[in-house]
């Protein structure tokens, strides 16, 4: 099997495995309120620090809450952060990138300088800065992470669009006197979406990572929420007595991140024209 074929096959396998696991986690997150064996927030002082057992798969925490139920419910936060922030950065970043590519001049200069400014702080610190002043909650974290990644989508979209605008088939459209909207819809977007989709896939991973890091630092959903980063942060002081309190959400987070990452890699190998050979059919 040649390299290209191998890449295709590996890509589709990564796509399938990653996709299945992500879909399973999404399904679990959706049905968790009915499916979870216990309440995610109810205290049971008699059962503090119970180790994993048949009744409590992942044990209980310092208030006697069932860690398994909390982890199940917590999946929603990670997914919301990952996909929500990605959606924000795509919805804002892609049009800005297109605008910058089409309107060379003032609009481009303004957008690109703003982008330069936003990437002149490392992501977590930009998130910290945005979240520092007002009381944190889930939605603010999602918006902050989304804003952090807007510049990346803007830059990518602009460079892809600029590259396409140089292509002869776009010149041909211009030679027909097509308007900007027609060129955008017919010539640019159909060719620009694969790299944008690939980047969006990557952004989901990074948004989950960044979002859970921010909640780990206390800048996400607040207790008694069962966001995984927050759960890990809270478990630190009991690491000797009840390691399962941190391990359960930690390993779940790892599983989700690995699955999303696999899915993204699979997408990349599928859609990246440099990786997939364009043979004659």
């Amino acid at each position: 099997m040649s390299g290209a074929a191998l890449g295709q096959w590996r890509g589709s396998r990564a796509l399938r495995i990653g996709g299945c696991v992500v879909a399973a986690i999404i399904a679990l997150a959706v049905i968790s309120p009915w499916f979870a064996p216990y309440s995610a927030v109810a205290f049971d002082v008699r059962l503090r620090f119970a180790p994993p057992s048949a009744a409590h798969f992942f044990g209980t925490d310092e208030f006697g809450r069932d860690v398994f139920s909390r982890v199940l419910v917590g999946a929603r936060y990670s997914l919301a952060m990952g996909f929500g922030a990605m959606a924000i950065s795509v919805i804002a970043g892609v049009p800005l990138g297109l605008l910058a590519a089409f309107h060379r001049g003032f609009a481009e200069a303004a957008i690109m300088r703003a982008v330069d400014l936003l990437i002149s702080l490392p992501p977590i610190l930009l998130g910290l800065l945005i979240l520092a002043v007002t009381p944190p909650n889930l939605w603010k974290t999602i918006v902050a992470v989304g804003i952090v990644y807007i510049p990346i989508l803007t830059r990518l979209t602009r460079s892809v669009a600029l590259g396409l605008l140089e292509e002869d088939f776009v010149q041909a459209a211009r030679a027909r006197g097509e308007g900007a909207v027609s060129i955008l819809a017919r010539e640019i977007l159909p060719n620009a979406w694969p790299p944008i989709i690939v980047e969006s896939g990557l952004r989901v991973t990074f948004a989950i990572l960044l979002g859970s890091s921010l909640s780990f630092l206390g800048l996400g959903p607040q207790p008694p929420s069962s966001e995984w980063g927050l759960m890990i942060a809270e478990s630190r002081q009991f690491i000797d007595r009840a390691p399962w309190m941190g391990l359960a959400p930690g390993l779940s987070l790892c599983a989700l991140l690995i699955a999303v990452n696999l899915f993204g890699e699979g997408l990349r190998e599928r859609l990246d024209p440099r990786l997939s050979g364009r043979g004659r059919a």
Binding site: D168, F169, Q171, A172, A175, R176, G177, R186, P190, N191
Partner: peptide, 25 residues
């Protein structure tokens, strides 16, 4: 900025056949 009629009457054929056609159409 020429009118549509000029655009219709004056056309171009490009050098590189690989980039001259929109690959998605």
């Amino acid at each position: 900025h020429p009118a549509a009629e000029f655009r219709r009457r004056a056309q171009i054929v490009f050098q590189n056949p690989d980039t001259a056609l929109n690959p998605r159409q």
